[in-house]
Design a protein around this nucleic acid. Structure first.
Length: 622
RNA sequence: GCCGCGUUAGCUCAGCUGGUUAGAGCGUCAGUUUUGUAAACUGAAUGUCGUCGGUUCGAAUCCGACACGCGGCUCCA
């Protein structure tokens, strides 16, 4: 950790205390939770009983914070034995602190995440949120005091409240005490903080930029998808333009998989409940399944939440020999999950989505080869999409809910790590991220704003083949159990689109652009219209997606409309073009570049756009 | 699901503490303009002020329930 980051950390942490000080001055009855540093700032969880803060209160709180900063109160560290600390918490009517201290005393750790540790006085090495609270010895706990405010805290802090840089309170949100939805909900006050006002402003500007790229906003502006109150929340409807994106991406992922010998299959969107009882999904996710009842029979059906059990049934439909393996199926399949309403978000969290799903049934000795192919396919895909990938090995943790033999798990995790090493992946391990049936390699894409999103995934599954009693006949004529490898390259097409729209800010490469070329006429004269129609025809023959704008608007206005829709290429047709048979294409965003493009023969121009689309490049061919 | 905030024309938004026919810009439509690379001009239409209920002489405005959205929390096969 660099010195600058250490300083920023201390500043942000000190601001959390200053905020708590301000809140305590304004509402002395406040019960405090924890107040750690987060990526760009800090928060503090508070409980004001019946009083609920809203953003309208920020002005008051910020004013009070500025007062405290001006008072330049020194931060002073002190230590108390744990029992004295518990007494202190009780006397000061701070039940949340008391709970943390009691846990600390009993367990030697607060058991919760490092967030708790960051605000505790336990003797952990000074580090940022990455420090894991290993079982700490319970000795004295430390406190920091500024003015008349004292808080249980591990530090570090800046010298005094006057030395905290620039900050801004951002929002207030509900947050469960210790992240447990069965515990009381507190209010979490978020602030951002930076060394200088300039950096703060830059951060706020970046947030503005992110807002402009928000896929929900662009989805509407670029006419890609809509959500209807009548259809329901989390059920996006894709317009013709949005459907082109889906189809092109769907084709891309299928081509990549076909190259590796996957066969397309098609399976229905519902199944009997028993299918998911066998797979284990019913027990694990029963409350998130949409149920479908038949009016004919008493049979209960489920709208499928994922596709592996269906695919498994195709495998199970015939006896399989070791010579048949690996058997590879793929399907761009729609799934439905009854997500809680509060969890829905644009296209990134929906109730109906499509996965570019695939399943491989393989022998043990084939795992490596198959997984390597898939990792390579994912690499190819994201390279072509111009997105950087990182790899997360998602392993199980000690919690319950993982099915199957722990020894198989260990084996599988070792295999995954081996694979990552052999493929030279830049990976990190995260425990508790595994699927209930096995460990995964998750691919995290980084978007243009530096945010990370999980996209592709390759998962090893030793559990479902057992539960479904899948078999093949091995070389010795004995029955053996295949291994399953689940893989999606895009993940959910909807979620991928949400990331990709924001990554590109809607400036899709030609191969994906719903409209590749916009043709604008200078006037409505017969000759112009006839020429334009001819160009449209030529383009259509080449398979290009073109739109003709021969409306009664000024050329400037029509250009603007094309730019607003982020069409990659625009050509203007008038007398000049009719005479010369050449066009000077306007490339999307040319205003920023300010360099005119060369004239091209109409047909040559159209062909070069066609080639650009075919090669799926992200670079302009002009 | 939970906490906070919000919902006014197709879109973006104004409408202060309740007071006669609810506004603007863009878009749409009509007319004029035959237009040369990011917004021509003039005019017109458009709203059960999210839904239902309540308070009130009177509700877009106050209260309640519900729906939907936003920011988080929790969850994410």
């Amino acid at each position: 950790m660099s010195e600058k980051q250490d300083k920023l950390y201390a500043m942000r942490h000190s601001l959390a205390h200053i905020m708590a000080t301000a809140v305590t001055r304004l509402w002395p009855k406040v019960k405090l939770g924890v107040g750690p540093v987060v990526e760009t700032g800090f928060y503090y969880d508070i409980d004001l009983g019946d009083k609920h803060l809203s953003e309208e209160d920020f002005e008051k709180i910020e004013a009070e914070m500025h007062k405290i900063i001006k008072e330049d109160q020194p931060f002073e560290k002190s230590e108390k034995p744990i029992d004295d600390a518990i007494l202190w918490a009780r006397e000061n009517n701070q039940p949340y602190k008391e709970e943390l201290l009691n846990d600390l005393k009993r367990e030697g750790t607060t058991l919760a995440s490092e967030l708790d540790a960051a605000t505790m006085g336990i003797g952990l090495p000074a580090g940022i949120t990455g420090a894991t609270p290993a079982k700490a010895r319970v000795g004295d706990v430390s406190f920091y005091t500024n003015g008349d405010f004292t808080d249980l805290c591990r530090g570090p802090h800046v010298e005094s409240t006057g030395k905290v840089g620039a900050f801004k309170l951002m929002r207030v949100a509900g947050a469960y005490w210790r992240g447990d939805e069965n515990k009381p909900q507190m209010q979490r006050l978020y602030g951002v903080a930076f060394d200088t006002p300039k950096e703060l402003r830059q951060h706020l500007d970046m947030l503005e930029e992110a807002k402009k790229r928000d896929h929900r906003k662009l989805g509407q502006e670029l006419d890609l998808f809509v959500i209807s109150d009548l259809v329901g929340p989390g059920l996006p409807l894709f317009t013709p333009r949005g459907t082109i994106l889906r189809d092109e991406l769907g084709k891309f992922t299928q081509e990549l998989r076909s190259a590796n010998g996957f066969k397309r299959i098609h399976t229905p969107s519902i199944a009997k409940r028993d299918l998911y009882k066998t797979s284990g999904h019913w027990d694990k996710f029963g409350n998130e399944l949409f149920l479908v009842t038949s009016q004919e029979s008493s049979e209960e059906f489920v709208l499928r939440p994922m596709n592996c059990p269906h695919h498994i049934q195709i495998y199970a439909s015939a006896p399989r020999s070791y010579k048949d393996l690996p058997l590879k199926y793929m399907e761009n399949a729609s799934d439905y999950r009854d997500e809680k309403t509060g969890e829905l978000h644009g296209l990134s969290r929906v109730r109906a989505f499509t996965q570019d799903d695939s399943h491989v049934f393989a022998r043990e000795d084939q795992i490596k080869e198959v997984a390597t192919e898939l990792v390579e396919a994912a690499n190819d895909m994201y390279k072509q999409l111009d997105m950087r990938l990182q790899f997360r090995l998602s392993f199980r943790d000690e919690s319950e809910g993982y099915l199957g033999d722990p020894r198989l798990w260990e084996q599988a995790q070792a295999r995954i790590e081996e694979l990552a090493q052999e493929n030279d992946l830049d990976y990190f391990v995260e425990e508790g991220e595994a699927a209930f049936y096995g460990p995964k390699i998750d691919f995290l894409a980084t978007d243009a704003l530096g945010r990370q999103w999980q996209v592709a995934t390759v998962q090893l599954d030793f559990v479902q083949p057992n539960r479904f009693e899948l078999e093949y006949v091995n070389e010795k004529g004995e029955p053996a159990t295949p291994v399953m490898i689940h893989c999606a390259l895009l993940g959910s097409i909807e979620r991928f689109l949400s990331v990709y729209i924001e990554h590109t800010a809607g400036k899709f490469p030609v191969w994906l652009a719903p409209e590749q070329v916009r043709i604008i006429t200078v006037n409505q004269e017969d000759e112009t219209i006839a020429f334009a129609n001819k160009v449209v025809e030529q383009a259509n023959e080449l398979g290009l997606r073109v739109e003709l704008d021969n409306s009664h608007e000024s050329v400037g206005k029509k250009i603007r409309n094309a730019e607003v829709m982020k069409v990659p290429y625009t050509i203007v047709l008038g007398e000049k073009e009719i005479q010369s048979g050449e066009v000077v294409p306007r490339v999307r965003g040319d205003m920023e570049v300010q360099k005119p493009h060369a004239a091209h023969e109409v047909e040559k121009f159209l062909k070069s756009v066609t080639n650009e689309a075919k090669s799926r490049t992200t670079k302009s061919s002009l």
